[in-house]
């Protein structure tokens, strides 16, 4: 929904900061990074791609192979521990977001009958010449659903974009 195509690290960092207090925020970035440094990777890395070698005269370590970044999608494909961490973080983030929406929904919708029971005066209240329960249940609740759904879709897509950025980073 939001045009959020900037792949630069700065934009990503800013976005992560903005999302921090939202229930579906991309916390996996931190978790996954932490895991990546303490040896989640267990295979030997594949050979570095052949390049024209550059002669550097000041360093004694010219022949040491550079460790390439191993794409996270391969970690997921090969079901390594790191790959599992990536996947679990995605599932957990999306589930927290879903659970958050469901909790809000059940508090609002599930709370209404109790509210009407506990405060009988509310049933009699009139809004725009109609009883309040009718205004809420036959009118206002529908735009509220659409708004909630829209916010959810936006956040869920944002979560997926963060995840894709994370695992496709080379």
């Amino acid at each position: 929904m939001t045009p959020d195509k900037d792949p630069s690290g700065a934009a990503r960092g800013e976005r992560a900061g903005r999302d921090k207090d939202l229930p579906g925020s991309a916390w996996w970035e931190r978790a996954a990074r932490g895991e990546a440094t303490d040896g989640g990777r267990r295979r030997t890395a594949p050979k570095a791609p052949e390049r024209p070698r550059r002669q550097v005269v000041t360093s004694p370590r010219t022949t040491a192979a550079r460790r390439p970044r191993y794409p996270a999608t391969m970690e997921i494909d090969e079901q390594t521990r790191l790959g599992e961490v990536y996947m679990r973080s995605l599932v957990r983030t999306q589930f927290r977001l879903a659970l958050f929406v469901c909790t809000v929904l059940s508090c609002l919708i599930g709370g209404l009958p109790l509210l009407f029971l506990a405060v009988p005066g509310l049933r009699e209240t009139r809004l725009l010449g109609l009883p309040l329960p009718w205004v809420v249940l036959a009118g206002l609740v529908y735009p509220a659903f659409v708004a909630g759904a829209w916010l959810y879709v936006r956040q869920a897509e944002r979560n997926e974009r963060h995840f894709a950025d994370l695992v496709e980073r080379r």
């Binding site: 469901c102 919708i109 009883p131 009718w134 659903f145 959810y152 879709v153």
Partner: peptide, 21 residues
Amino acid sequence: GADMLWLPVGWTGGYLVLLVL
């Protein structure tokens, strides 16, 4: 009467639950 207003509310809200889960 008013109790039955919950039917359409639920039949719409069901899609919200379906959407998120």
